[in-house]
């Protein structure tokens, strides 16, 4: 009986130098290296808490009129203009009807973010589904892409006017004036902005499904649904993330355009876009009424953009570790 010869040193498996790590831990450590994404995520958490918890801390009603305290400037104006009308009761000032600036910013953020996120998620769901189906299922490709072309040629504003005319009453009856409008706006914004996502996803899927790893998966009998979920979708995550960030911004801006035309939320329902549009005529005298919601919209969109950028880098195994 002889002992087995010792394996050649060079062929011996290396003992792992560190304990095994899960995929998501890798993603996280990569994500943390992207400082822009970290700042973006931080701001997004902050703004979300600001609009969700804000009303419990700053309890002034955003819609309460107070004619005795109107046209108050924000506290910081006192730094350079000692004669400015400021009041600690209204740290961000008040508008020409005496509505508090801070609570309006909170309430406006609630509706704007809700519309933005909901429309974005819906856009992604529709866009990705259509893109994946037309890329993966050859028979559906033609009809779905022609449908995409059809939607691309729809002008959004006339469509919205028609939709409001037809669906305002039933939705109002079902969800109330604000809820009904929310559903309508989110649906219409999503219905008119999923097409770029669908086209990008389709293009990527078409290229990916001819790759060897998909062939390998197919050859071991993986079912199409699993191929899509496990092999294709994670690989098209980056373009989806980019569309998502753009979609959020579009939704917020579209909502404000609608309010301006008078087919959006009721005129006493604050949103960032509406606050911005309302403040334009008095921009010279009260720049903060344009700046505050404008900066809030810009920062939110920027934060989502950076977050998306970081997520894309972190999720892509090819860029991970670089």
């Amino acid at each position: 009986m002889t002992d087995a010869p010792p394996p050649i040193q060079a062929l011996q498996d290396k003992v792992p130098s560190a304990p095994p790590r899960s995929q998501w831990l890798d993603v996280w450590s990569q994500f943390r290296k992207h400082s822009g994404a970290m700042v973006g995520a931080g701001f997004l958490v902050f703004i979300t808490l600001f609009v969700l918890v804000g009303p419990y801390i700053w309890t002034l009603d955003a819609q309460a009129l107070n004619m005795r305290a109107r046209d108050i400037r924000p506290i910081y104006t006192a730094l350079w203009d000692s004669g400015a009308k400021v009041d600690w009761a209204h740290p961000l000032g008040s508008d020409n009807l005496g509505r508090d600036g801070l609570s309006q910013l909170i309430a406006g953020g609630r509706s704007s973010l809700a519309v933005g996120w909901a429309a974005m998620v819906l856009t992604l769901v529709i866009g990705t589904t259509v893109g994946v189906l037309s890329g993966f299922v050859r028979k559906l490709d033609g009809p779905l892409m022609r449908l995409t072309d059809l939607f691309l040629s729809l002008p959004i504003l006339p469509l919205l006017l028609v939709a409001v005319t037809f669906f305002r009453q039933p939705l109002r009856a079902a969800f109330g004036p604000e809820g009904g409008m929310f559903v309508l706006i989110v649906t219409v914004v999503a219905l008119t902005s999923w097409m770029p996502t669908a086209r990008i996803v389709r293009g990527d899927i078409l290229a990916l499904k001819e790759r060897e790893f998909v062939l390998a998966a197919r050859s071991i009998g993986t079912r199409p649904l699993h191929i899509i979920l496990r092999h294709l979708l994670p690989n098209v995550l980056s373009p989806i993330m980019v569309s998502a960030t753009l979609g959020l911004a579009t939704a917020i801006i579209t909502e404000s355009a609608l309010s301006f035309l008078g087919v959006g939320f009721p005129s006493d329902f604050p949103t960032w876009g509406k606050m911005l549009a309302d403040a334009v005529p008095r921009m010279e005298d009260f720049p903060e009424r344009v700046l505050l919601p404008g900066v809030a919209i810009s920062l939110t969109v920027l934060a989502v953009n950076y977050l998306g950028d970081g997520l894309r880098d972190a999720l892509d195994p090819r860029t991970r570790g670089r």
Binding site: Q63, A64, L65
Partner: peptide, 24 residues
Amino acid sequence: QDFQLLIKDWWRQIGVETELRNIE
């Protein structure tokens, strides 16, 4: 729209609920 807000507020004080709507 400013008028609507003010009038809505006064009507709220006498117990009347108002829904505002503005049309192009």
